[in-house]
Amino acid sequence: MLRLPTFTYHRPKTAAEAVAIHKAHGKAAMFVAGGTDLYPNMKRRHQTPTEVISLQDVPGLHSVDVLPDGRVAIGAMVKLSVLEHHPTLKQHYAAFAHAVREISTPLLRNMGTIGGNLLLDTRCTYYDQSHEWRESIDFCMKTGGAICWVAPGSPRCWAVQSSDTVPLVCAMEAQVELVGTSGTRTIAAGELYRDDGIQYLTKQPEELLTRLILPAPRGWKASYLKLRRRDTYDFPVLGVGACVWTDAAGVVTKANIRLGGAGSYAIAATDSEKLLVGKQLTDELIAAAGAAAQKPARTMDNTDLDVYWRRKVAPVYVARALAACK
């Protein structure tokens, strides 16, 4: 049986306390929310914190609140299965509820949280392996070695952004709230991520993600389309998050398209976005915008399914995601 390494388990009662414990232990510490990402990593020994800080007792992280200005704030510890069934989200944020439902399995969604999904570790078929497997190939740079096995000449790690919600919330221009040693700050979701397989987050390690804030449901339409082998269990090997703002005449005023599963962060399909602005969303325009999305899809051979095929079907998926925004 795969088992967890030993660690000290903390259950702080406030966000400040959680942050303080993390700060005190530095790299030896990690937060845990649902545990569905961290514990498998620990069992495979590629994350081995000796201090595990559970956020389950931290107040204020467990609710979904509609703010006075119409935005919706989701506590980081809210379970994914709560979100997928939440009436407000299903009604006004159908794409978000759908993306949540696309995550893994119902059993896992009963445990996993939105905070955990937003901060999901990047994935790679050279990384998400047991200690023994990684030892056999010689450890990669994400686990303390020197090489990136996907691109051995590369100075950087190419592990893949694999959260289903991230491309969508980035496209929707949602915000995230972070609590650190010097207080609370709110940033655009897109600013939370970096193009690096190892340092894939911009936040400080001890900073605690407390809330996801979705924009008020007015003037835009979003969609999420996921490519994977099976309709459950699997992480996205391509996840298209699209959000389109239109004026009263149906002319696109702004469009965001983010490609998940195609790089170390949710990549913007900027050429496609530019094509859309100022025009009506016709079938022809959607096809053209799709075709323009092939270039940014930087698929690598470190996920399920063939790398070239994933790149080739990216335009189809982008077009279909846009069609769903009509």
Partner: peptide, 12 residues
């Protein structure tokens, strides 16, 4: 609620 006992800490 059905959950995965392999990813749940007993203390919790």
């Amino acid at each position: 609620t059905p959950i995965l006992s392999c990813l749940s800490l007993a203390v919790d």
